[in-house]
Design a protein around this nucleic acid. Sequence first.
DNA 1: CTTAAACTGTCACGTATGTTACAATTGGGA
DNA 2: TCCCAATTGTAACATACGTGACAGTTTAAG
Lengths: 235, 235
Amino acid sequence: MIKPCDALAKTSLFSGLDRVTFHHYCSVTKVRSFAKGEIIAAEGDICGSIGVIEQGQIAMQKYTSSGDFATIGLLGPGDFFGEDLIFGSSNIYTFTLEAMTQTEVLFVSKETLRALLDKSPVILNNFLQILSDRVTVQNSRIALLSQKSLRHKIAFYLLELRTEQHPASAGSVTVQLPVSKEVIAKLLAMPRPSFSRELIAMENDGLLEVKGRTIRLVDVSTLENDVVEGFQFGR
Amino acid sequence: MIKPCDALAKTSLFSGLDRVTFHHYCSVTKVRSFAKGEIIAAEGDICGSIGVIEQGQIAMQKYTSSGDFATIGLLGPGDFFGEDLIFGSSNIYTFTLEAMTQTEVLFVSKETLRALLDKSPVILNNFLQILSDRVTVQNSRIALLSQKSLRHKIAFYLLELRTEQHPASAGSVTVQLPVSKEVIAKLLAMPRPSFSRELIAMENDGLLEVKGRTIRLVDVSTLENDVVEGFQFGR
DNA sequence: CTTAAACTGTCACGTATGTTACAATTGGGA
DNA sequence: TCCCAATTGTAACATACGTGACAGTTTAAG
């Protein structure tokens, strides 16, 4: 089990702060574990606190009446959720949060958050930054989904992973898929067989080398070609 | 020409406030006009102020090296831009803002905004809400682009327009396309001829009636069928 | 170690969608 | 009023992609 106080200290919400400043609030913070497949929040639920992911991967899913669903986004360690609902016009979840792996989440209630924001300008700044950066990430997802071929989408996604996992390096690198290819396919809004097929085709074309969830980007410049480039965070 | 002070008062950033509170800042506010097709901000530009659209439509475009582009989003009267960059980790535009029609924009500089946020908790709240709501809108766009057929995307978009333009009413209504079908097609990430073809097919199937940019939604329940529904703002 | 469940690869087939080019229509400005 | 530019419709053709079903493989649990 994780100690809330230590975990909190590491989140981007509290970065640049001495622990004394928020020490008082540690006791109010809840940590919860979720098993793989468990629902963390369902569409229609009221959002009363924000969550920070300590471990695991969470998918934002949007279901249709017929049981099918689209994957809006994927959240990993350090990511927040609910930060957009807590102060929005509506605090109702418009999607479902589902644990894709065993997951540990830290919750901070609206009241606590509000108190922290009022008390510390640094925390307010951090919160604004978290919210803002989410918009940037969303923009990137929209650009991804606007790509006009499967190959472009895949290339876009892999390049995105690269900047996440290897912020500095250019050229040939290896990236890790954070979840199963099945989930990735959903994230890229394509059928899993199509994803599988195209990945292999790209491998045959000498762009990649796939080994399980490890993918080596061989011909980066071709991958980048004609892709509506990912949003770089000042590299 | 629009008077900044009057215009400012109407924006959601200042809603619920007496004019006295921000009266002092009116003089600092700039209003600018843009002709159709004009670039308001280009990818790579530094974002030093937020904008509020008074009149017109602005597209967020992401260009490829080959000159092709994707339309990330469409902004109309009352919408903001730059609000996600001003306090983000990077304040560099990662897309291009382009006027799709003659446009009037109100600019508020970062310094002014900061001062306003510090001075008034109401404005802070409003700003948080604006940022948060943008995330919700983005989520909706992502859901749209995740639809698995052209028809679903179009249905999704038209239903979205309905909730925007007729928040209360259900059933058969007419909606207005805010820009040309060419631009809409880009927004839906599909070729214009495909959009045209599918729209007509939907009309033939009795779902719609198209007359220029006016579209009457005839069979709403079928339109809603199997669509990963749009995000409703508490209707 | 064994077994089931989850994940991944594979294939054949059909069709929805992209492409390109041209024609028709609309609308705003001179 | 006329005209040009912007917008929209149209059509034939090619193909990238979706579908559904099965087999192989890996993983985790007992």
